[in-house]
Design a protein around this nucleic acid. Structure first.
Length: 827
RNA sequence: GCGGAAGUGGCGGAAUGGCAGACGCGCUAGCUUCAGGAGCUAGUGGGGCAACCCCUGAGGGUUCAACUCCCUCCUUCCGCACCA
């Protein structure tokens, strides 16, 4: 008979809920442990990915509880967002009704898994007692100058009819619907995340317990590159230089350059480089086709028409086409020349799409000998090359012999007074020298852009701003919060600001002058909501602010955060930004929100990601029905380590179920007293399982629990041994363990049990097996007492009969003895 | 191209310098059962009758000893990307 998981699971779920056993309270006498799993979007059904994420978290949380920690393990719902609007239209209901229904279903499913959440702390971001604080935070940021509105070219998804943050554009397409993103000029709200770029980058080194790849992805995204902006003077064109520096665009004006007053040709082309050490090898300049100076420098030149045609052609190509290999070498000569500021050589100016307007200054100095892209371009168009860095290991090279650019380190040559210096040193010296001479400026470029947060959607937090004809942009005073989202709006699933069509919403009085005014009708990106929910969990019902200082002081930072790798950039970067902002406001002490991060791997079926279109979805609910939640939990933790991908296997589930039944049946055959051999195995298992749990190695912890079970079948367990096994497995299979715990006569929940310590005396072996190798190959094993003397052991080993064929007539050259492990005889 | 992770039986995986393949799935045999897609026990990397030999993506190195450390290369997955 299989154990009756249905009955048992329901019984204990009810008990946990009614006893509020997982309610967390600050307690200064205990060590706190804040364990958090990324909260879900309430789609209505939990999928296998949720199950894996939350099972890993739950096993860890329950282990920490037993191990004596005061554990905070909350759950909530990231409830705003576009799918609710689409679903509401499809099902002819309202987003709030649909969302709360989904939350209800989802909670039922989460409870069926037996997760140890403190449900009293549940938050949903779509409730006004939550999003009120979104608005409050927005206003605080506004006061600090971290929120601004700007007309700019923004990413626009025509299908969703809304704007997107840079982080939401994946391969030039909308992250949600994969429609190609277009650029649109709009007035939008931005958060100045760039204000924090240095700290967001530097503090990554502080996050020692984050996966390397997440740190790398964040660093990559912030994209710091240090270098030099160099000013190239344009050679006088045939026409009189009518336009001076004043006509140049603001951003390209060389700040502090003494050249502006020199009276000759004033036109300056700034370029950005990370390799100032190669400046003497710059043999041409390339402008991006979008560069604003092009039209001026080609005016009335023979090349004018050709260049314009080229630009026209390039502008029609999309970004992806521009990256194609054969397009890479395309380019056209402008007819104009500039002077290399370090040696006054005349170098030609080209236009090519391999230079991007978005990065640096939109112009580069090309050094074909030391940059592979420049090399390919120069070879294609027959442009000059000049070696300025000599490889140290090989002799002198000639430019004609080059088959590729040399991008490594070496010694400066053809570089005037810098000849003979190692290039890394020259890099610094040249930068300094050029900066002092006013022909360069040491600069740092960043990839990170400010965060666009306006969305033209209904189901989100209204941005708390009022537009008054007289006073302009006026923030809503805090006492007027929340700006409630109206219950109804004519949303279509498309954008076009549904709120703009709700008169009762748009009409407002100016807080300053009381004049009839209009409300902002954009809502906030939902990533705003999830950037601080971990703080709200510390005091979810606090009414005087987004969170209570004392509660946050006790619980923060999150000791262990668990979630999917897909949030490696967006959510984690934004949360780090918010945390730093709150710290600067003096509201919290932590500088970083998440001390440890675990990114769990995906669940695959037949080697592929589960998806509706592939039709390979495993529905957690049907597994629970067939085997129970404990079996599902056990399988998911056993099948693979948490960080790696997990291959779903129906037979594996069966195996997990079989194991639980095997443990269940132990109760029928308990002995009066277990053998010392079994007790020893138990204590070894305790040690191993404890260590494994601490490192989230659940798969090997389970393996050693299976070994213990196998040993029990061999030797027969007593109540003591069986009880300990039940506690050890309880973080993984909580219902099952509660039931057996009760059957064993315990009155209190197993949640309140103590994690068993392993007795060091029982871990000591009296007899140990020593491996004997000859020339590194295992030839024999001997069993000896653990405290045997080394000489005696050597003697026994050398006289071992099994070794005779290997030792015959050969002198022993060397003998390696590793205490308690092995002997290696070298002959 | 840059950055990150990985490559071990038929499969999921274990071992972080010291017995390669723990544990499980699958498979094989036996026992048990009226019967079983249940349970129990044993076996199960490859070659060889055997003694033995071979085996952790490939090749080299360090070491008494290498899945593990170092070098070169290959492959796969993920992120970024003509980022100057």
């Amino acid at each position: 008979m299989d154990y009756s998981f249905n009955e048992i699971e329901e019984k204990w779920q009810k008990f946990w809920q009614e006893s509020k056993i997982f309610s967390a309270r600050p307690d200064l006498k205990k060590k706190k442990y804040y364990l958090l799993e990324m909260f879900p979007y309430p789609s209505g059904k939990i999928h296998i990915g949720h199950v894996r994420n939350y099972t890993i978290g739950d096993a860890a949380a329950r282990f920490k509880m037993l191990d004596g920690y005061n554990v905070l393990h909350p759950m909530g719902f990231d409830a705003f967002g576009q799918p609710a609007e689409n679903a509401a239209i499809k099902n002819k209901t309202k987003p709030d009704v649909w969302t709360s229904k989904c939350i209800d279903w989802m909670k039922i499913e989460l409870k069926k898994m037996g997760f140890s959440y403190d449900w009293d702390r549940e938050v949903s971001t779509c409730n006004s007692d939550y999003y009120k604080w979104n608005q409050w935070i927005f206003l605080r940021m506004y006061e600090k100058g971290l929120v601004y509105k700007k007309a700019s070219s923004v990413n626009w998804c025509a299908s969703c009819e809304t704007t997107l943050a840079n982080e939401e554009v994946i391969d030039g397409a909308c992250w949600r619907c994969h429609t190609n993103v277009e650029l649109k000029d709009l007035e939008q709200w931005f958060l100045k995340i760039t204000e924090y770029k240095e700290r967001l980058l530097e503090d990554l080194t502080w996050l020692k317990d984050w996966p390397q790849r997440v740190l790398a992805m964040q660093a990559n995204w912030i994209g710091k590159s240090e270098g030099l902006e160099i000013y190239f003077r344009l050679k006088d064109s045939t026409q009189p230089a009518g336009s001076g520096l004043a006509s140049d665009s603001q951003s390209h004006k060389p700040a502090g350059s003494g050249l502006a007053s020199s009276g000759q040709s004033q036109k300056i082309i700034p370029v950005f480089t990370t390799r100032p050490d190669t400046i003497f090898g710059a043999t041409y300049i390339v402008l991006s086709p979008e560069h604003p100076l092009i039209k001026e420098i080609i005016k009335e030149r023979p090349q004018e028409r050709e260049v314009l045609k080229f630009i026209e052609k390039v502008s029609k190509e999309n970004k992806i086409a521009r990256l194609k290999e054969d397009v890479k070498k395309e380019g056209v000569f402008t007819g104009a020349y500039a002077f290399n500021p370090v040696n006054n050589e005349e170098i030609p100016i080209w236009v090519a799409p391999y230079v991007l307007m978005e990065y640096g200054t939109g112009a580069i100095m090309a050094v074909p000998t030391h940059d592979q892209r420049d090399f390919l371009f120069a070879r294609e168009h027959g442009l000059a090359m000049k070696i300025v860095i000599q490889r140290t290991e090989s002799g002198e090279q000639r430019t004609e012999e080059l088959t590729s650019a040399y991008e490594g380190d070496g010694i400066q040559v053809n570089s005037a007074q810098f000849d003979g210096l190692p290039n890394q040193e020259a890099k610094l010296k040249i930068s300094q020298w050029m900066q002092n001479s006013g022909i360069g400026k040491i600069q740092t470029h960043w990839r990170l852009r400010d965060w666009l947060i306006s969305r033209q959607r209904y189901w989100g937090t209204p941005i708390p701003i009022i537009y008054c004809e007289k006073c302009g942009i006026v923030p809503v005073p805090c006492e007027d919060l929340p700006v409630e989202l109206p219950k109804e709006a004519p949303f279509t699933g498309k954008g076009g600001s549904p709120l703009a069509k709700v008169k009762e919403f748009t009409q407002a009085r100016c807080p300053k002058c009381d004049a009839q005014s209009l409300r902002e009708t954009d809502t906030m990106a939902t990533f705003f909501d999830s950037s601080w929910y971990f703080l709200r969990f510390c005091s979810p019902k606090f009414e005087k602010g987004p969170f209570e200082a004392e509660a946050v002081k006790y619980w923060m930072p999150v000791d262990q955060y668990i979630g999917g790798i897909e949030h490696a950039i967006l959510h984690l970067l934004y949360s780090r930004f918010f945390t730093k902002f709150f710290k600067d406001m003096g509201m919290i002490e932590s500088n970083e929100p998440f001390t440890r991060l675990l990114t769990q791997g995906m669940v695959l079926k037949d080697g592929e990601v589960m998806s509706k279109s592939r039709g390979n979805i495993v529905d957690p609910d049907s597994i629970i029905k067939k085997y129970g939640a404990d079996t599902l939990r056990l399988f998911i933790l056993f099948a693979a380590p948490p960080e790696t991908e997990l291959e779903w296997d129906d037979r594996g589930i069966e195996g997990a179920f079989k194991f639980l039944n095997r443990v269940w049946r132990i109760q029928d055959n308990l002995k009066e007293k277990a053998s010392p051999a079994l007790v020893k195995i138990l204590h070894k298992t305790i040690k191993k399982v404890t260590e494994d749990f601490e490192e989230f190695k659940f798969n090997t912890a389970i393996a050693s629990l299976m070994e213990l079970t196998n040993a029990i079948y061999l030797f027969g367990a007593d109540r003591e041994v069986f009880s300990k096994l039940i506690i050890l497995i309880s973080p993984i299979t909580p219902h099952f363990s509660e039931e057996l715990w009760q059957i064993l006569g315990n009155k209190e929940s197993i949640v309140k049990a103590d994690w068993p310590p392993s007795d060091p005396n029982l871990l000591v072996e009296e007899n140990i097996t020593i491996i004997i190798q000859v020339n590194g190959k295992v030839r024999s094993k001997i069993e000896v007492s653990a405290d045997i003397e080394e000489d005696k052991l050597k003697e026994i080993a050398l006289s071992d009969d099994k070794l005779k064929p290997w030792l015959q007539n050969k002198p022993v050259k060397k003998l390696i003895l590793i205490p308690k492990k092995l002997i290696n005889i070298v002959v």
